Computed example of a mutant assay.
Amino acid sequence: MHGALAEMQMHACTSLVDYFDKDSVEFMSKILHSSGQGPETYLPPSMHFIPPRPTHLNSIQEAQMVLFPIMEDLLVKSSHCPRDIDFLIVNCSAFCSSPSLSSMIVNKFEMRSDVKTFNLSGMGCSASILAMALAQNLLLVHKESNVIILSTEILTTGLYSGKERPKLVLNCLFRMGGAAILLTNRKQARKESKYTLVRVMRDQRCFNDKAYTSAIREEDSNGLTGVTLRKDILEVASDMIRAQLSALGSSMLPITEKAKFAISILRKRFVTKATEIYVPNFKTIVRHYCLPVSGRPVIKEIGKGLRLGERELEAAFATLHRFGNQSSSSLWYELAYIEAKKRVKKGERVWMLGMGTGPKCGSVVLECIRPIISESKKGPWADCIDRYPFSAFNNN
């Protein structure tokens, strides 16, 4: 299941799979080499065959392989049983089964008949943050409740077998993974909780045709389905990030930072257009950052825009290298990395930023409410945390 196998398969596809011609294989190989992903990322079993087997049954098996273990692990770590859960939210964009994935979980774990379930699809890498917003709203209405979010992406059905390069990119970028998150407003749970939810922000650009089609699933000229990534996506992403920063800054930045920003705008408008707009120092309100892991260039560009140093970007680079882009669940692997490095202290804040198809963008601010210890000995980084960081992040 290692990502390194993907490249070997692609070269083998030159002679064994008629829809991957030589040019397509070479193009995907270049994407893999420049992506920032290491040799230990995971692909589902369906993609270990030549040709791959993107069947419905294999998609179901992949979903079970990811969702069942993380659900069980969360219940054990939180000392809950399935019947303690009042709401279940499952997000997955590429695969929508019937019965739903949330129904699959209820059936497997024999949850209560009155548990309220939600299935989110089509929201891409932003889905986990949007699920947090939904959970927050549920908890504001329903007292003494528990919400579980299961965040994943099923890759089996997402394979594009054609030759159009804008659609071939996604064959290379995404990897297998998932995260389970428990949110609660029960009073007795505060002592065990790691974080309190400070703020959730959402933004979208679906109303704009150019933005709407910047990342879209569609058929190619031969009727084969894949997700097209257009060049407009970078401009759209920058626009949405600015909106998130504006919302975050207006509500949380200290008055001195707001003043510097306002003065720079006035100076640019009325004094000299050459004046650069002041970028507020968000480190005054946020200590740790979990960013989209869409690729090394994207991480660097976001970091540059936020004036972040190597240490703040370390979790994103490490997650990309070790686990790849796991869509909406990647942010939680980054948070697990920061915890495993013993960097999150009580009172410090974490900002998680997610962007996905639509296009949609969301962010969450969490505040640590208790000391977090022993995370390096459990979780996804238990067997490799000592290997990170390393210089390859910035040199390759």
Rank of each mutant, 00 (worst) to 15 (best):
A6T: 12
Q9Y: 15
Y19H: 10
K22R: 13
K30P: 09
I31N: 10
I31Q: 09
L32P: 02
S34K: 11
S35R: 03
G36T: 00
G38H: 11
T41G: 03
T41L: 00
M47P: 02
P52L: 06
L57H: 14
Q61I: 12
Q61Y: 07
A63T: 02
M65T: 15
I70K: 01
I70F: 03
M71W: 04
E72Q: 15
S79Y: 11
C81E: 15
D84L: 09
I85G: 00
I89D: 03
I89Y: 00
C92A: 03
C96V: 10
S103W: 00
V106S: 01
V106Y: 02
K108S: 06
S113D: 15
V115Q: 01
V115D: 00
K116R: 12
A135L: 09
Q136Y: 08
L139G: 01
K143P: 04
I154M: 08
T156G: 11
G162M: 00
E164C: 05
L168R: 07
V169R: 06
F174A: 09
M176L: 14
M176G: 00
K191E: 14
K191N: 11
K191T: 12
E192R: 12
M201H: 11
M201Q: 07
R202S: 05
Q204H: 15
Q204I: 02
K210V: 08
Y212I: 02
S214D: 04
R217A: 11
N222H: 14
G223P: 00
L224P: 04
L224D: 01
G226Q: 03
G226C: 03
T228E: 08
L229C: 13
V236G: 03
A247L: 07
T256V: 13
T256N: 14
A259F: 07
R269S: 12
N281H: 08
K283C: 09
K283T: 09
Y289Q: 05
I299E: 04
I299R: 04
L306T: 03
A316E: 06
T319A: 05
R322F: 05
F323Y: 13
Q326N: 13
Q326H: 05
S328L: 01
G358N: 12
S363W: 02
V365Q: 02
E367Q: 12
A382Y: 05
C384Q: 09
F393N: 07
